[in-house]
């Protein structure tokens, strides 16, 4: 197990290193562009030259990259050219707000999708199963910005129960209801489908039939025999949902003007705020790499039938 985790960790570090190079290459390969973005359109050529010299941009690309990487690892993430604030100070509160949003979405979607998936998968092909399966196809087909529009149309424009955008500087419950619903709606359908498939497969197993034949009640079969095996796949899939959630969070935050990580990244990219984009991209990739690592380790822990050696297909 330790060896398996160590190999996975080494792979994750290699991926992070490659990602950092890619991000730096895309954003800072052209030093003059960076100077224009930081100093603005109306800066003069001598000003730009001075800035490039002062900030070490006249050195070779690889030297600049290594210095940037070293600073990044040490926690010096540069200064936002738009907000004139250190990036390392700006990010944590935004991440916290997005964390609250994502956490609440998970809190809604995980129990909901487990219940729906188990109900549907318990008896394959029944009317309940078909209704739940169809509903989950519908919710996963509606992109986040569209479900945000539909839900706003109902709860904001028509009923007037909830605010359509975040306006308070702090945290307000009524302002997170719609963003959380939109995020949960999309992911619940997907996770319910995975749970359903997994549950349906387990219900076909001989040991479930044995339990049925010896006269165990349906509740006992589901809770005692089926659930433990049926939830291995969905639990690991929750981890893999986090990349989706991160993409969805950008759309939802922009739509509802929620001041989180997503709007920060979006505004940074519109403003050409190089240091901020770099930090946001790196943080989002870090979140994904860590959750994938956790998902791999969790899967082997939950399912002892999986060997700790490298999987033969080499899929990460």
């Amino acid at each position: 197990m330790t060896r398996y985790a160590a190999i996975k960790l080494a792979e994750a570090l290699a991926v992070m290193l490659a990602v950092s190079f890619l991000v730096y290459l895309v954003l800072e390969a052209n030093a003059r562009d960076v100077a224009v973005k930081v100093l603005g359109q109306f800066s003069t050529e001598p000003q730009r030259d001075l800035w490039l010299a002062e900030n070490g941009y006249n050195q070779p690309f690889i030297v600049r990259y290594l210095r940037w990487l070293w600073n990044f690892v040490r926690g010096d993430w540069g200064v936002s050219s738009h907000y004139r604030e250190p990036v390392a100070v700006m990010l944590p509160p935004r991440l916290l707000r997005t964390g609250i949003l994502a956490g609440l979405a998970l809190l809604v979607m995980v129990p909901a999708s487990f219940v729906l998936g188990i109900l549907a998968g318990m008896r394959e092909g029944t009317r309940t199963d078909r209704a739940i399966s169809f509903a989950s196809v519908v919710t996963t087909s509606v992109p986040e910005f569209a479900s945000a529009v539909f839900l706003s149309a109902i709860f904001v424009f028509w009923l007037g129960w909830l605010p359509g955008a975040s306006t308070t500087p702090g945290f307000a419950w009524e302002e997170v209801v719609l963003p959380v619903l939109v995020l949960a709606l999309y992911a619940t359908g997907y996770l319910a489908r995975i749970t359903r498939a997994s549950m349906a497969e387990v219900m076909m197993q001989p040991y479930v039939r044995t339990a049925l034949m010896k006269g165990a009640s349906p509740a006992r079969i589901v809770f005692r025999h089926a659930l433990r095996n049926a939830l291995v796949a969905p639990i690991t899939v929750i981890m893999l949902q986090i990349p989706w959630l991160l993409s969805g969070v950008i759309v939802v935050e922009v739509y509802f003007a929620y001041k989180g990580f997503g709007t920060l990244l979006y505004e940074a990219s519109l403003n050409g705020d190089v240091a901020l984009i770099e930090a946001c991209a790196m943080v989002s990739v870090l979140v994904i790499v860590v959750t994938q690592l956790a998902s791999d380790v969790l899967y082997t822990l939950l399912n002892p039938r999986i060997s700790f050696a490298r999987r033969p297909d080499g899929a990460a």
């Binding site: 990602v19 990349p243 991160l246 993409s247 950008i250 990244l265 989002s284 990739v285 994904i288």
Partner: peptide, 8 residues
């Protein structure tokens, strides 16, 4: 490439 959130 798959380590990036697609939208990012």
């Amino acid at each position: 490439i798959l380590s990036f959130p697609v939208l990012v």
